[in-house]
Simulated scan of single mutants.
Amino acid sequence: MSGPIVRNYKGGSIVYFEKDKAEDIFVLQKGRVVLTYSNVNGVELKEDVKLGEFFGVKSALGRYPREETAQVIGAATVLVFKVPEFERFVSDKTHLIIKMLKVFSSQLRQVHRQVREILGQGEAKNPPFELMNVAEVFFKNGNHEHAAYAFSQYLQHYPDGQYIDRAKQLQDLAVRKGTYPLTLPELIYKPEPGAGNGKLQEMLKTMAIQKDPSTSTVDPNSIQSQHDKASTMMSAGKFIEASSIYKEISERTDSVTQEEEQLVENSLFYLGKAHYKAKDNASAINTFSNFIKRYPKGQLLKETVYHLALATEANGERDKALQLYQKVILLPPTDDSISEDAKAKVKAGKS
């Protein structure tokens, strides 16, 4: 019987890109691999793969494109399974199956929580309205594919619905990857009798945002909940509100899990980014500098130095900014988009 193969990667190598065709499942044996992906709000997040942990599982088993980019930091050795090999491998290992189900369940809860934050709702009002609301949130966040799918489901299941003309207009724009029309009146909730929740839940499940039935409540004061709320604020352009939440998270000392500790670290970076977006360059410079001191080997170190350079340049310190851009170019990986942007900044500064 064939088995997994061993594959070695050099530092900066890409194991796979987002939207690549998914065929293989990987296990990290040695080194470091970082997954980069965007949450429902469109905010870019990074996550370290733990030693001995599988990655690329969902997309390979589901036969859909990768949802994240997997990049090697330093150097790494991985085991590579084909799907049939992986299925044989875990078939008699119940503990692995349970562990993966827990991870997937947690991810579904997190995405659902983010969607509810965006919608600003508690429980569902009525399926047609909520489906339209979900579709429009996706559209506003630039997720044209999910938006077009949601609008098509509204047109299919509610051909005589109150929002039919609006759905047709927005679906056409989403399919053509147009921009959400700012002149469009706000979606107004209108009770629509006779609509059951079954269809809506089925559609949301297809879009991977169905709530995990095993969880009935979410602690609004948890680090994860607060981080999701701040991400939503950032996505909505509410940088002052976001910075207040990120600051609170970055100062918390009650994190107990590795995921929560990473969220605390990430929040300090996003606090600086919120200051920069709000054009408070002095606060951004101070926050990014603080991040570098606290997390000299942090996952977001390169992004932090780059944004420190941006804030320094915006603050009128051009020579210092150029020095920082040159440091960015030297930080691994040296062939990513941040390096290219930094090189362009240095070239423009010298011309």
Rank of each mutant, 00 (worst) to 15 (best):
N41P: 07
E67I: 12
K58T: 12
R88M: 12
G62V: 01
A75P: 04
Q29T: 07
E85T: 15
I98L: 14
R32Y: 07
K46Y: 04
R88L: 15
V72N: 00
I98M: 08
I25N: 00
S91M: 12
D92R: 15
E85Y: 12
E47V: 03
L101A: 11
K21I: 14
S105Q: 07
T94V: 15
G31M: 03
D24I: 12
H95Q: 15
V80Q: 03
E53Q: 15
K102L: 08
L79C: 06
V43P: 05
K82W: 09
L61H: 00
K93D: 10
F55R: 06
V72W: 04
P65K: 04
S38R: 09
F55T: 02
E44C: 09
A75E: 14
L35N: 07
R66V: 03
V49C: 05
V49H: 00
T77A: 07
D20Q: 06
G31P: 05
P65S: 05
Y37A: 14
D20H: 05
V90A: 00
L61N: 01
R32L: 13
R88E: 12
S38T: 12
A22G: 01
L101S: 13
D24H: 13
M100N: 11
V33K: 01
A70T: 06
E67T: 13
K21P: 08
V34I: 15
F26R: 01
G42I: 00
F89P: 10
V78T: 13
Y64R: 09
A76N: 08
A60I: 02
G56Y: 10
V40M: 11
A60R: 02
Q71N: 02
K58F: 09
K46L: 03
K99N: 12
D92I: 15
G52P: 15
A76C: 05
V43K: 04
R32T: 13
L35C: 10
E23H: 12
K82P: 06
K50A: 09
G42R: 01
E44H: 06
G31F: 02
V90S: 01
K21R: 12
F55C: 04
F86Q: 01
E53S: 14
E44W: 06
E47L: 04
G56T: 09
M100D: 07
F86L: 08
A60G: 08
V80N: 02
T36N: 13
A22P: 03
K30N: 13
